[in-house]
Design a protein around this nucleic acid. Structure first.
Length: 973
RNA sequence: GGGCUGUUAGCUCAGUUGGUUUAGAGCGCCGCCUUGACAGGGCGGAGGUCGUAAGUUCGAAUCUUAUACCGCCCACCA
């Protein structure tokens, strides 16, 4: 017995192991196949799977699985990033727990601990990726610190240094006092905070009682002040040009200088210049040759140069100095001030601008090809709006600070002689040789060389990733790199567009002379329902593994993708995942239905009508599949992954389950014919293949169950369905048919009739063939639950009617119709269609429209007009006859007259009813004409007609009516 | 301050070269339906003057301009 709901837990583990055992994800260069490769954005080795990874890697898996099924040599390279700051922080924390301080141990010891930590806790995320079904080639797993990748990084550093692209210099850098390292601009996050602006008085030397007042947010840095600066055009301060002032508390004398940099209308127009602790001040300092006084140590504590508050943390010092300044009377004002504070992305510490000696990579030349090839679409960004962002960054790119004051990472291969001479070489030995040979320092030993203690920025290794995973730096001509590079698609978040994507492109052109990937798909950021970024501290991030446990990997994957258009943030809601889970369940139950059918083999005469239905349904659904394949291929070509999934979702749920299966489903307890079961299984298999990239597990499970498969075979290596013929005729007739079915169901609903009651349906059509011989009629009977359809040539009196295309449908219900309601509905219908008719006619009368619009469009307008007229015609008739029925002769007359005026066709009863009405209204002459016209319409049925006339005439006029037809003898009365 | 997006149903979003007085989907909502694949379901339904204002056009959610908000990126106002 198959379980009633889809139970993913056992199924997923089973098939993932099966795929691994049969090496379905393994890839090696195959000249007979087109390569398709993706390198994973390497997660931090310290990382655990979060929703962002889930989304990102699902998209990659969809792409790679689809490519694999399309016969490409698909290779998805997994791996992890050593993440220097994050990992070092974890290791430091771990050591601290064990009572060990980093500063007390040697670099070697520390690295030993770090590697231990990495071996024990690192790379958890890779196992987690398997849970989501990621079809990576695990044998190719790489780590940015493993020897060959390490070597590649060192090598590129040396080569760039030799090309004079790397230099060492003193710069104002973003200093993280907690991590005690420099950060690149990209690693800094700006936060808006409410700060205080302090107004401080600096006494003017030689002018007792006079002050210059400055405004600052950092009063603790006054001890590092080198000058006070005012705008030369600021008349308030002209008198003070060339004077000096005293730093409060400290009583050190500093000059008043002038520079146009100072804005006159901010604060007091007076700026204190602190070259060591502010980038702008630093530049001012250089310009005006001011001394640089750095009063902070690496951890953000005041050093002895500060003289005051030495040994205090910068924030403590701020509190204290504010208090002292206030007491001494130098603080005149404090105001709230909205300001930006820079913080470290990794440690959260407030960044300190700090002068330090760092290594830089010149970016100007290197980045040129990277800009050009994105702008000319050699590399495409999805969505393309990021091209703008990319360009503005690239055009204003700054030199990249690549040194970090850490131990975990690739140590900078720069060696210093005692006199400070720098020798850059891959190893100490090489450096020594270089020193000996190039500088003739033969007496030198390795002891005399000191390696730079810093390591390289993590991104300085990950920018090589698409090359280094294939060993393309050290062995530039090896088989892997030649075959797989450039890779095809890169899937990542827009938050690392500059950090990583741009630099990979730069590296691609620098080291391979070509692009690293052709397409960059930038996913959105997963946010919570309120639009907040998911974060540990908010606790608003669900654990993907728990979700998988609860909803199944396929459910989570498809759920996330339902609402994940490229570049748009995704507001996560459990509802999405539920929807994915429900989709799995729907598929599962469709399978249960098909699986549960009993089969008959024998061809039997009795099954004739069923055959027609089945053949039609199969033909229709095949066309729908083919149509959808075209659609999803188009979506994929534009990286519209969500849209492709949605197309499939609708195809499976609405067309396959709600329509196709309902059509071919045998009545309860009855068997199904073998051939239709086989075609159904064939269709089901196709659907599973189409869905496999999105929902690998359930599709494998069902695919395996639908037929006997060879040992080791998997749907993931089965050919992705190619499109075929799309029969538009059958699609259109089915579309009309479903419209008819919906109308009937609507009537059933409106009349509150049980679905079990078969309704009598009559159709007035010029094309009975399509209903009778094409099986359409039979399907209507089955899906709308009608009695055997009758075909009529006249309108049916007293029936509920509706029109689809050119055909009219009548359902006669027992009991009185609600005339008022019918009238109201018909009236509404009439008005709508009259308006429609008017607009369309106006459009068609417009020569410019007919001349300029596409011919198909004009033709479609004409068709719509014809349909609308038909509907108007029907509504008018209903209004006329219903009004007649309730004795509203005047209204009835005018509706019938309208009816005739539309000249769409005629109907004998219109003439007839109108004739009687006119006679009743004492317009005998005209009435008589109408009655005769009625008879002319269908002379063969004269007797029926006269009977109807007499039935509708009142006693008063019966004789007159009779006199019109003197030869008609029998009175119905 | 500069630049770039976006603004469509109660919510989250589609809407691909302008073209039905009828702008779609999912969720949510309303009504009916439970022995029969699935209530994690079926069948129907309601709900939008497409941010605002002008303009171009035979025709505008779609193009132009202006404007208001949301968001993102960049930038040295202490």
């Amino acid at each position: 017995m198959i379980s009633k709901t889809y139970a993913p837990q056992d199924i997923e583990a089973k098939w993932y192991q099966y795929w691994l055992d049969n090496k379905h994800f393994a890839s090696k260069p195959n000249p007979d196949k087109e390569p398709y490769s993706i390198v994973i954005p390497p997660p931090n080795v310290t990382g655990v799977l979060h929703m962002g990874h889930m989304l990102n890697n699902t998209i990659q898996d969809v792409l790679i699985r689809k490519a694999r099924m399309e016969g490409k040599e698909a290779c998805w390279v997994p791996g992890t990033d050593h993440a220097s700051i994050a990992t070092e922080a974890k290791v430091v924390a771990m050591l601290k727990e064990r009572g060990i301080e980093k500063k007390d141990i040697s670099r070697e010891e520390f690295l030993k601990y770090a590697h231990e930590w990495k071996d024990k806790y690192g790379g958890i995320i890779l196992g987690q990726l398997q849970k989501i079904g990621a079809s990576c080639d695990w044998d190719r797993t790489r780590f940015t610190m493993e020897p060959s990748l390490y070597e590649a990084v060192i090598d590129t550093f040396v080569r760039l240094y030799n090309k004079k692209q790397i230099y060492r210099g003193v710069r104002m850098v973003n200093w993280d006092p907690l991590g005690k390292t420099a950060l690149s601009d990209e690693e800094v996050i700006e936060k808006e905070i409410m700060a205080k602006l302090y107004y401080l008085q600096y006494p003017i030397v030689g002018s007792e009682g006079e002050f210059l007042t400055i405004a600052t947010t950092r009063p603790e840095t006054i001890m590092a002040d080198a000058a006070i600066c005012v705008n030369p055009n600021d008349e308030r301060y002209t008198a003070f040009h060339g004077k000096t002032v005293m730093i409060p508390l400290l009583n050190r004398e500093i000059p008043v200088i002038t520079d146009e940099y100072v804005t006159m209308d901010f604060g007091t127009g007076c700026l204190k210049v602190t070259p060591a602790h502010d980038l702008n001040d630093y530049e001012l300092g250089i310009k005006h040759k001011l001394p640089v006084l750095d009063i902070l140590d690496d951890a953000g504590f005041l050093n002895e140069k500060a003289v005051l508050y030495v040994g205090q943390d910068r924030f403590a010092a701020r509190r204290n100095i504010v208090k002292d300044l206030e007491e001494a009377g130098y603080l005149t004002k404090m105001e709230e001030y909205k300001s930006i504070v820079k913080t470290s992305e990794r440690t959260g510490a407030v960044i300190e601008p700090k002068l330090s000696l760092q290594w830089f990579l010149k970016m100007e030349e290197l980045s040129k090809p990277a800009l050009e090839h994105v702008m000319n679409d050699d590399i495409k960004l999805y969505p393309s709006k990021f091209k703008n962002t990319y360009r503005s960054w690239m055009e204003n790119v700054h030199d990249w600070c690549i040194s970090r004051q850490l131990w975990w990472g690739q140590q900078i291969p720069a060696f210093y002689l005692q006199d400070g001479t720098i020798i850059v070489a891959k190893t100490k030995r090489e450096a020594l040789r270089k020193a000996q040979h190039e500088m003739q320092l033969f007496a030198l030993t390795e002891e005399d060389l000191t390696q730079d203690p810093d390591v390289l920025d993590t991104w300085f290794s990950s920018w090589l990733w698409p090359i280094s995973v294939f060993d393309g730096i050290e062995n530039p001509d090896n088989e892997d790199i030649s075959y797989y590079y450039p890779t095809n698609d890169l899937v990542t978040g827009p938050d690392i567009l500059f950090f990583w994507v741009a630099r990979m492109i730069i590296a691609g052109y620098e080291w391979r002379g070509e692009l690293p990937f052709r397409n960059v798909y930038l996913t959105g950021i997963v946010r919570d329902k309120q639009g907040r970024k998911m974060s540990k501290s908010l606790g608003n991030s669900p654990d993907p593994l728990e979700l998988i446990e609860k909803f199944g990997a396929d459910g989570v994957r498809s759920g996330l993708l339902f609402s994940a258009p490229a570049g748009n943030d995704l507001l996560y809601d459990d509802k999405l995942i539920e929807q994915g889970r429900n989709f799995c369940n729907k598929i599962w139950n469709a399978y249960r239905l098909v699986e549960g059918w009993e089969v008959v083999n024998k061809q039997s005469e009795l099954y004739n009508s069923i055959d027609i239905i089945n053949i039609q349904a199969y033909g229709w659904f095949n066309s729908r599949i083919n149509q959808t394949i075209v659609e999803i291929q188009d979506h994929f070509s534009k990286f519209r992954i969500s849209d492709a999934l949605l197309s499939l979702y609708n195809l499976v749920w609405d067309d396959f389950c709600s329509k196709y299966l309902e059509i071919i489903k045998p009545p309860f307890g009855e068997p199904i014919k073998k051939d239709i079961l086989n075609s159904t299984i064939e269709l089901f298999e196709k659907l599973m293949c189409l869905l496999h990239p999105y929902m690998p597990f359930i599709t494998e499970e069902i695919w395996q169950a639908l037929a006997t498969r060879e040992e080791g075979k998997s749907i993931c290596r089965t050919e992705f369905p190619k499109g075929g013929e799309v029969n538009t005729e059958i699609l259109e007739s089915f579309e009309a048919m479903f419209e008819i079915i919906t109308k009937i169901r609507e009537i059933r609903n409106a009349k509150q009739l049980s679905p079990k009651i078969a309704l009598p349906l009559a159709i007035k059509t010029d094309d009975e063939y399509i209903y009778k011989n094409m099986g359409i009629g039979l399907i209507i009977e089955k899906l709308a639950n009608t009695e055997t359809i009758s075909y009529v040539s006249d309108k049916v009196d007293g029936a509920i009617s509706f029109v689809v295309k050119a055909d009219e449908f009548f359902i006669t219900l027992e009991g009185e119709l609600d005339v008022e309601a019918e009238l109201e509905a018909a009236q509404k219908d009439l008005e709508y269609n009259l308006g429609f008719k008017k607009a369309t006619e106006a459009k068609l009368a417009n020569e410019r429209f007919v001349a300029n619009a596409k011919p198909e469009l004009v033709e479609r307008e004409r068709q719509k007009l014809a349909d609308a007229k038909n509907k108007i015609w029907v509504s008018s008739f209903i209004l006329g006859s219903e009004n007649l029925k309730i004795g509203n002769l005047g209204k009835a007359e005018s509706h019938f007259r309208d009816f005739l005026s539309y000249e769409i066709g005629s109907d004998f009863r219109t003439f007839l009813y109108l004739g009687v009405i006119l006679i009743e209204a004492n317009k005998q002459q005209e009435g008589r004409e109408m009655l005769l016209k009625a008879l002319d319409e269908q002379p063969s049925r004269k007797d029926d007609h006269i009977g109807l006339i007499l039935k509708n005439a009142s006693d008063k006029n019966i004789n007159y009516v009779r006199s019109v037809f003197p030869n008609y003898g029998v009175s119905p009365f």
